[in-house]
Write a protein that binds this DNA or RNA. Structure first.
Lengths: 248, 248
DNA sequence: CGGGGGGTTGATCTCCTTCAATCAACGTGG
DNA sequence: CCACGTTGATTGAAGGAGATCAACCCCCCG
């Protein structure tokens, strides 16, 4: 296991980049002060495992920066990614003592953690936290269900296009770009991780990405840097409504 | 659209079969009284659509009896079931005005409904409801993620075995049977509905069920009546941990 | 220079889909 | 009562999308 550097950083909640999107989004300043007392930061390096499925989990927390994956593994080694954790996403389940999934940092990762007991205690006394957590959980449930359609019914090409459009969309919302004009981003996942997300093999992922490139749906510089000249076109390839999908 | 008989039944919450599992599970008697004032029952016949994706949704509610499905459909007609609604399950999302999925009654169905505005209002003033809803939503999220593994990584045979074991397990918990001895139940879904749940074609479902029957993993009387002589065996076929799975 | 991680591409195989015929159960109207 | 259509299900034959096995490339790093 690699070296984990705790407490390498510390931050005022007021300056926090995920202040308005995480579980704490609705908290008033006094509530934030109490959270500030029990929070602590943890850093993980790319590739490091945050927690193993089945392990005792005595904390919950939010992704502050970086990307992590939630995966499930069968005894014979087949793995399926069941969630992609981006900044502001919440890790852990109040009321459960052991982790249900493997959590792995795919990039360098910073998390804002709370020990479980104090957090649960605070949740019962702070409706703003519970409200926000419910909202976030409902969003995740919607995302999981959208992904079930991808996994169950889409072709390999459509799966790739779906993944690219999800990444493109969240990237656009992060950088506040205009919606016309080409979209450019770096893939945060290896081909293998994409395969685990999409229920494919990495070879098929590679082939379909090449095919989309040949067909001009995307352009690549290097392996990871993607340009989407026409988002409409990509959405068509994904089999989605051209107008941008179901979650308005 | 078929005739929907509203108000055909009315019931005291105290006698309600889902009293201890639904959103209202944690409510005190006084809270229950207030819920009782705003609730109303709706009945649907087997095959009837409860709500269409995209439609305005001015109520939320719980399944009291019967079974409904949550499905997503692509423009070309491919459909994926994203949830199976059993008694006590919750339908609708507070804070959202239109339905995200098609909800269809697969058997005769009774729902306990609340108009959305009064319910949301009550939710903010009754932590017991919000707490329970969060817990139920987290459970659904776990179920959705478990299903992502099934859809993404399991073979057709494993998918069928997984579906059968899920139905068997919930049936066992409903009838409070001992866990040894054979398990017997009726399939609540057609072959086509199973296919939509599993991301398969109905022909493949039929073939794999026949194969499991030939191999003695299950026994069939008619098309729907299933006997599981050895649950351990079925779980092995599903590719699950023999000890009964991940959600302890 | 060797080695390893990440990625691409090719050849072959196989599991599942697709298309199609058939069947059993059921209801309906002549 | 029987012919007929319908709905749900089973089974067969053929084809294809993606998996599998394998070779090879590129780039970085020790």
């Amino acid at each position: 296991m690699l070296n984990e550097r705790s407490l390498a950083i510390s931050q005022e909640c007021g300056d926090c980049p995920i202040r308005h999107k995480a579980v704490c989004a609705r908290c008033e300043t006094d509530e934030l002060e109490r959270l500030e007392e029990i929070k602590y930061y943890r850093k993980f390096e790319a590739g490091q495992t945050v927690i193993w499925s089945g392990d005792r989990m005595d904390f919950v927390g939010s992704v502050v920066s970086g990307i992590a994956t939630l995966t499930q593994t069968m005894e014979d080694g087949r793995t399926q990614m069941v969630g992609l954790l981006l900044p502001s996403d919440f890790v852990g389940r109040p009321g459960r003592s052991s982790a249900a999934y493997d959590v792995v940092a795919t990039t360098d990762l910073v998390m804002c953690c709370f020990r479980k007991a104090p957090f649960e205690d605070m949740m019962t006394r702070t409706p703003h936290i519970a409200e926000r957590l419910l909202e976030m959980t409902l969003d995740e449930l919607d995302a999981a269900r959208e992904w079930m359609l991808v996994l169950g019914r889409k072709t390999a090409r459509e799966k790739i296009a779906s993944l690219l459009s999800i990444i493109a969309r969240r990237d656009a919302s992060l950088h506040l770009r205009r919606s016309d004009g080409p979209i450019v981003f770096d893939l945060p996942l290896t081909r293998e991780a994409m395969a685990d997300y999409l229920g494919l093999t990495l070879e098929t992922v590679s082939r379909q990405i090449s095919a989309l490139r040949k067909d001009g749906v995307i352009a690549l510089e290097g392996k990871r840097h993607v340009t989407i000249p026409d988002m409409e076109r990509l959405l068509e390839e994904a089999g989605d409504d051209a107008d941008g999908g179901m979650l308005a």
